[in-house]
């Protein structure tokens, strides 16, 4: 299992070979966490559905990292894309992109990060992690770095991310959710700060060895983001088409859209907390 294992090449992979998209085509970038080729196959019915709903051609692209999605929106080589909360904040700041829909999982449009340790570690609170090692996912991850770090900030243990090096004995960036949670399970590190669902990457019998000792503030879920200046009519059409999947006859297509439960409407204010935190941690400019 490789989950958001890495931020790989900044290349976009064209979904369909052939001529360049027509000017009126709507261009949508999917992020491939794992197997780009598989995603290409998976999103085909989604593309067909959107074409029927929007009444224009839809060109889908697959990117292997968020930077490529943000870059595509900024460079206007894509009209919309899927991304995480922190990446959205950066896309908004750098390119004026804005979110239209948030993903819903397990009935919620938010999730949390947790600090996991082994049950047999004797560590019962985040304070006890002073001078201990911790694994995060990625230095630019919302749930795998910024929000877990905020758990320590909320407890008054650090003031800024630059303080983290002094608080922890060692910080690692494991490169993926599973690598981070397994690093704790296997005893490579004392703790991991990761999104709540990373826990379920362990096998059931392994989960019993783990316990969460800290939990972050709610994080708004990943979102569908459109570029500044995108055709408002098509943006409305995209919003309505994806919202129609929540209860409609094409609900099965959600399986191809990262298996979300559905979508909710969002705007920039939904991510205001993320933006604020990103500023406080120096991820975005004041």
């Amino acid at each position: 299992m490789r989950l958001r294992n890495s931020v790989c090449a900044l290349a976009l992979f064209a979904l369909a070979a052939g001529p360049a998209p027509a000017a009126e085509d709507f261009r949508l970038v999917f992020i491939a966490y794992q197997n780009p080729d598989q995603l290409v196959d998976n999103v085909e019915p989604v593309v067909e559905y959107l074409e029927a709903r929007l009444g224009v051609g839809v060109k889908a692209y697959v990117a292997t990292d968020y930077a490529a999605v943000v870059e595509a929106l900024r460079g206007e080589t894509a009209d919309a894309g899927f991304m995480g909360p922190l990446q959205y904040v950066l896309a908004h700041q750098e390119a004026g992109a804005y979110p239209i829909l948030g993903e819903v999982y397990s009935g919620s449009s938010t999730y949390v990060s947790r600090i996991f340790v082994r049950k047999d570690s004797g560590i019962e609170s985040v304070e006890q992690l002073k001078d201990h090692s911790i694994a995060f996912v990625d230095p630019l991850s919302s749930s795998g770095y910024m929000y877990p770090l905020d758990v320590f900030r909320q407890q008054g243990l650090i003031d800024h991310r630059d303080d983290a090096d002094a608080f922890f004995g060692r910080i690692y960036f494991a490169g993926g959710d599973e690598q981070a949670i397994r690093a704790v399970y296997n005893g490579f590190v004392d703790a991991a700060g990761i999104g709540q669902y990373s826990f379920t990457l362990l096998r059931p019998e392994e989960r019993d060895q783990m316990v969460a000792i800290g939990e972050s503030r709610p994080i708004p879920s990943h979102c569908v983001v459109v570029r500044k200046g995108a055709d408002p009519e098509l943006v409305d059409g995209l919003r309505e088409a994806l919202l129609a999947l929540n209860d409609g006859p094409n609900r099965n297509l959600l399986e191809q859209l990262y298996n979300v439960d559905g979508y909710v409407e969002v705007d920039h204010s939904t991510y205001a907390g993320v933006a604020e935190l990103a500023k406080e941690y120096g991820f975005v400019r004041e």
């Binding site: 931020v7 900044l10 968020y66 930077a67 943000v70 870059e71 900024r74 990446q87 950066l90 750098e94 390119a95 694994a135 990625d138 230095p139 630019l140 910080i171 690692y172 960036f173 494991a174 490169g175 690598q179 690093a183 296997n186 005893g187 490579f188 590190v189 991820f283 975005v284």
Partner: peptide, 23 residues
């Protein structure tokens, strides 16, 4: 365990390209 930490060190040592110059 020692080798597991090697892998974590390797991953961390890669650094990060950031997004649009951030991070």
């Amino acid at each position: 365990v020692e080798l597991g930490r090697c892998w974590l060190e390797l991953s961390s040592a890669l650094g990060h390209p950031g997004v649009l110059g951030v991070g």
